[in-house]
Structures are given as structure tokens and as C-alpha cells.
């Protein structure tokens, strides 16, 4: 694996590959597409590139049209990085549904040890 740079985005560790740019004569980070392959923080908030197109919930602090995540008031950009976290409730990943524990349908345990 080539060079990478690590970021801790509100509890999720991202390893971003680096690529050498001949014109700029420097290493450039190659971010994955967070829309195609979503990444979430432990709290269920999506990680997004600052230049991602704004979604339907996007709002700017001053009411101007919201073009991208970076200009949205719900977006928390990680200092020194071009990625951040969307804090909008509607974008938060819902926790997986718990199984339906209907006690009447449960078969009684018939002996033996569990384990």
C-alpha cells in the first residue's frame, strides 16, 4: 500500500491514500466517494467531503443558497481536513431494528444447559 494520511473524524478513523501530483510537486489526498460508500461515526452521523453537493436539508447560517456541505450550518468540518461530519438528525443512520420479543410465541426451554 502506498502512502496514506490518517484522520480521526469524531471517532471514526479514516486512512486516506496519497498520490504525487507532478504539476503541483506535492502529495494530494485521494478521498473515497462517501456517497457511494457511506462512512458513519459511532453516533451514526455520515462523514462527507466538504465539496459534496448540498442535500435537501442543507441550510447556510446566513440564509444564502446552500451549494455544498461546506457551506451548510449542520456540517462540522474537521480542522485541517477536507472532510467532516453532517450533524442533521435526518441524515443520522438509524440504529438496526431490535428483534420483536413476543413472549407468547416463544417456545419454552426444554432442559439442557445453555452455552
Amino acid at each position: 500500500m502506498g502512502k496514506t494520511r490518517q484522520y480521526n473524524i469524531e471517532g471514526v478513523l479514516l486512512e486516506i491514500p496519497l498520490c504525487y501530483d507532478k504539476i503541483a510537486e506535492r502529495e494530494i489526498e485521494i478521498f473515497p466517494d462517501f456517497i457511494e460508500t457511506p462512512v458513519y461515526t459511532p453516533e451514526g452521523c455520515p462523514v462527507l467531503f466538504t465539496g459534496e453537493d448540498a442535500c435537501a436539508y442543507g441550510e447556510t447560517p446566513d440564509g444564502a443558497p446552500c451549494i455544498d456541505c461546506g457551506s451548510c450550518r449542520y456540517y462540522r468540518q474537521t480542522p485541517g481536513a477536507l472532510v467532516g461530519v453532517c450533524g442533521h438528525e435526518k441524515k443520522r443512520r438509524k440504529p438496526p431494528e431490535r428483534p420483536n420479543l413476543n413472549m407468547d410465541e416463544m417456545k419454552p426451554y426444554k432442559g439442557g444447559t445453555q452455552g
Binding site: 478521498f31 467531503f49 457551506s71 477536507l82
Partner: peptide, 22 residues
């Protein structure tokens, strides 16, 4: 593709040393 555009924008932001599209 949209992914390619985002890659260009991300590269441009890094080369220019800026944090946001604006």
C-alpha cells in the same frame, strides 16, 4: 462522473490550500 468532479475539486482545494469551495 460526479465522482471525478469531486476528485478534481478536492485536488484543487488542496493545491490552493483552501478549505471550502466558496
Amino acid at each position: 462522473s460526479s465522482h471525478t468532479v469531486k476528485r478534481y475539486i478536492s485536488t484543487v482545494l488542496q493545491k490552493l490550500g483552501i478549505r471550502q469551495r466558496q
